[in-house]
Design a protein around this nucleic acid. Structure first.
Length: 418
RNA sequence: GUGGGUAUAGCUCAGCUGGUUAGAGCGCCAGGUUGUGGCCCUGGAGGCCGAGAGUUCGAAUCUCUCUACUCACCCCA
């Protein structure tokens, strides 16, 4: 027996309707917000992610699925969705399309991590990418897209946390201030944080060690070091959120794990799925397009974990919609071929019809119809064929009505409407 | 990378301090007479008891090693 790879999951036939529900709501949200779908390859040149995601991040340093292909190229399975879209944006000259360019994607992403609840080595992300607009309202619209999807899926719980991590200019000053502050308390920091002090002082803010967290609580805030432009932008975002009556909290300790963010960063956090967990994370990345080799173009977006959506929906008891089931199960007694052919005809006319293909007894066919949750069943045999009529049984209450074969389609369609 | 937990039927699990042919519920398949599902009853299929080594007359059960899975931390979606 060959088992499934660690950290991966099968989507089974009993469960897949849950994903169908999410995907259809994604399509509806995309329609409402005018997002066009984009799909980029599952693997790219490793170099793209080194430059895009940032070579000091955990993702690049230890979590990428990187290998050499038979042509000697270094290939990486995408660890996030944005870099590929940026690459495609540049390569295909998409900056010539009307701006802002509003896109969404759904893609598998791969990270070599220790799996746990809601964390896999292969998971799937719904993501939004909007290029060309640098305004606060574009940031807020992106957050609204996420909220709108949550609402449609019956998830009311996510809390919105926002922050601004400034631009390279203001972050320089902030970094110095942080270093100065933490250096003065270096003795009290945990060993890893002492290392962080050298590499990336920002990360100390994230430490869960009690001592470090206490020290971090009094650390200087990014928000006090924003330049004029970043400050106005941040105020603009908050103003719009207020006016739109979207609840949020400012959390100046949000430090996202990808290096490309500038200005606005945000997370939607849920607590319903065991570990406290981010179900959606995003922000603005105004320098990324240029960094990857295109002409400068502001951009903002987010990624949302589909598996975490499913877990959250299940945890809060949200509805996944109806499990698909046949409109009509056509059982037969000694008329397997006729039932089979009639079923095909019904399908050609838009009816979700089903019949037995295992030569079962009538009783077994009825049981099957019940298990499939067929809404109606009819038995076809010699007499029905002769008379051109059959009895259609409503499975919910057992009532039967006689219907002419010729008007079967109409009958089912009318019942479906009612 | 750091720490816990668990491995017995397709699924959820029982198998007490080692003792013949390894169990239940659910699910699956078939039947309970002639052409009708759900409830009930009967039967059937389906397990190298995660792998290897050891202790023993005898191991699903005790010991060790390995492996897999899982949960939490880190980080993230």
């Amino acid at each position: 027996m060959i088992n499934i790879m660690k950290g991966t999951k099968d989507l089974l036939p009993q469960e897949s309707y849950k994903w169908d529900k999410i995907e259809s709501e994604i399509r509806e949200v995309a329609r409402l917000f005018n997002l066009k779908k984009i799909a980029t390859p599952t693997f790219e040149h490793t170099e793209l992610f080194l430059r895009g995601v940032g070579d000091t991040t955990d993702i690049v340093n230890k979590e990428m699925y990187t290998f050499e292909d038979k042509g000697g190229r270094s290939v990486t399975l995408k660890p996030e969705g944005t870099a590929g879209v940026v690459r495609s944006f540049i390569e295909n000259g998409l900056s010539q399309l009307p701006m802002p360019l509003k896109m969404y994607y759904e893609t598998p992403v791969f990270r070599y991590e220790r799996p746990q609840a809601g964390r896999l080595r292969e998971h799937h992300q719904f993501g939004v990418e909007i290029y060309g607009a640098d305004s606060p309202e574009q940031d807020v619209e992106v957050m609204m897209i996420a909220r709108s999807l949550f609402a449609r899926l019956g998830i009311t719980s996510p809390e919105l946390h926002i922050n601004s991590i400034g631009c390279p200019t203001c972050r320089k000053g902030y970094n110095e201030a942080l270093k100065k502050y933490f250096a003065s308390k270096e003795e009290e920091l945990c060993p890893t944080c002492r290392e962080r002090l050298q590499k990336n002082a920002l990360r100390i803010l994230d430490c869960k060690e009690e001592k470090c967290a206490l020290i971090a609580a009094n650390a200087p805030s990014v928000l006090d070091y924003l330049c004029e432009d970043c400050r106005t932008h941040h105020e603009g975002v908050k103003n719009l959120l207020d006016k739109a009556e979207i609840p949020y909290s400012v959390d100046d300790r949000i430090v996202r794990g990808l290096d490309y963010y500038t200005k606005t960063v945000f997370e939607f956090v849920v607590t319903d799925i065991g570990a406290k967990s981010t179900v959606c994370g995003g922000g603005r990345y105004n320098n990324l397009v240029e960094q990857i080799g295109g002409k400068p173009c502001p951009a903002v977006g987010f990624g949302m974990g589909i598996e975490r959506l499913v877990l959250t929906m299940a945890a809060v008891g949200a509805s996944f919609g109806e499990v698909p089931s046949p409109d009509l199960f056509l059982a037969n007694i000694g008329a397997a071929d006729e039932a089979f052919l009639l079923t095909q005809k019904l399908r050609a006319q838009g009816i979700n019809a089903e019949c037995d293909t295992m030569r079962r007894s009538l009783k077994a066919q009825m049981k099957l119809a019940d298990k499939l949750a067929a809404k109606y069943t009819a038995v076809i045999g010699e007499s029905e064929l002769q008379q051109g009529k059959l009895k259609v049984k409503q499975m919910s209450d057992g009532s039967e009505e006689e219907v002419a074969l010729s008007s079967l389609v109409n009958y089912i369609n009318q019942k479906k409407k009612a």
